[in-house]
Design a protein around this nucleic acid. Structure first.
Lengths: 224, 224
DNA sequence: GTCTATACGGTGATAGAC
DNA sequence: GTCTATCACCGTATAGAC
């Protein structure tokens, strides 16, 4: 049990750490991972370099925490979408797709940050572990939805993991497109492509996918 | 017209630059982009830092040249595969897929280097331009093959660009998997997934895809 | 908690010998 | 061409005042 003063101190300390992590994300997005220094983060956070190292014991620790935060934020997005999706396997799959292209996670800044860490992952086991866990968790959720969907369709569920790889792989690849070719690719276009693929993968439910896409479009541009 | 001595000097100079670029690639793959310094490259190349700057006017210029080299190497791989593929649109599409998963370009070191530059691309316009041009060129080639394939099948070619996005996107996404989850994904598995997708996209030619896959497997493990 | 001042090593780049 | 020696600067991290 902590008294109010102590708790408020803790909350404040934690809030400060969040501010710093947010600044680190902005810095990585703006100047890149390689050029992100304590100075750039401090500037973005509006505080001194020394204060960064008061809240995090080193630059490395700060960056690891930043990656963890980005990863957790993404996980929360698709997990909460899944929680709201009900029990229909297709609805769950669509929720996962929708979450992957929600503005919160699918914007150029977030994708750039994500890929900045991907780029360093091979040479930093800690990054690799966090990125890998993230990917794996989402892949498991997708596989589960695919399996349920196949079973609901009366098909053998053996193909679920391959199906999940096709969906997840395509999403990841389209993210790269959005990062590298922002003129050609955006989250709406990308989601359209994934839904196209989904219709081919589950032709029997094409109508349901149409309906979901229409509802999705309506949600962002309410009818006149 | 250059005399032999002068040409040999030029060739030697060019060869030296290639050595340095190769060392830069090794360094980026081993210690990452952020930790790649003139010292790490010089060490990898077995020469002094000063010599690096004799051949390239700056570290930045060296890294740009390195990205160009990686990009050109990849382009040559799929272009040469395409040149050998004949005229059948499906064969050309399969050539592009095969090139994307050939050991020359689809190994963890190359993918790591590639993504290291991707990670920095948003904050470095020069990198973005090179990466974007690379992606675009390959996308155009794939779209062309898809269009020809659809026409050959007697279908409207309107869906060619979407089809190309599905294929290219999936390939890019699976590359990420190989980088991040090397235990789960490798180039054989990844190619298998893309071929699975291709069979769904072009069901009429499934048998041809089977045959290509079988021939491909035979090529790497000759019959007893 | 947050700051300024500072230590210290490593970084990209240059000068000049060979 | 390639090296060693050296430069000025900038990076992370710490000390200590407030």
């Amino acid at each position: 049990m902590v008294d109010r003063a102590e708790r408020s101190k803790w909350v404040s300390k934690d809030a400060r750490r969040r501010d710093i992590v947010a600044a680190a994300i902005d810095s990585v997005a703006r100047v890149g991972f390689a050029d992100t220094t304590l100075a750039t983060v401090a500037r973005e956070a509006g505080m001194s370099q020394a204060n960064l190292l008061f809240h995090f014991k080193s630059k490395d620790a700060l960056l690891v925490e930043t990656l963890r935060h980005v990863s957790a934020e993404f996980a929360e997005t698709w997990q909460s979408a899944l929680a709201k999706a009900g029990t229909d396997p297709l609805a769950r799959l669509l929720a996962l797709v929708g979450a992957s292209f929600s503005p919160k996670v699918c914007n150029r800044k977030s994708i750039a940050v994500w890929h900045a860490f991907y780029g360093e992952a091979k040479s930093r086991p800690q990054y690799l572990k966090i990125c890998g866990a993230n990917d794996h968790e989402r892949y498991e959720a997708t596989t589960q939805a695919c399996r349920d969907l196949l079973l609901a369709e009366g098909k053998p569920p053996d193909g679920a993991s391959d199906m999940a790889r096709m969906i997840e792989g395509l999403i990841d690849g389209l993210w790269v497109d959005i990062l590298i070719s922002p003129d050609m690719a955006n989250r709406f276009e990308a989601q359209r492509i994934v839904l196209l693929q989904l219709r081919i993968l589950v032709p029997d439910r094409a109508a349901d996918i149409d309906a979901w896409e229409a509802a999705n479009a309506r949600r962002r541009a309410p009818a006149p």
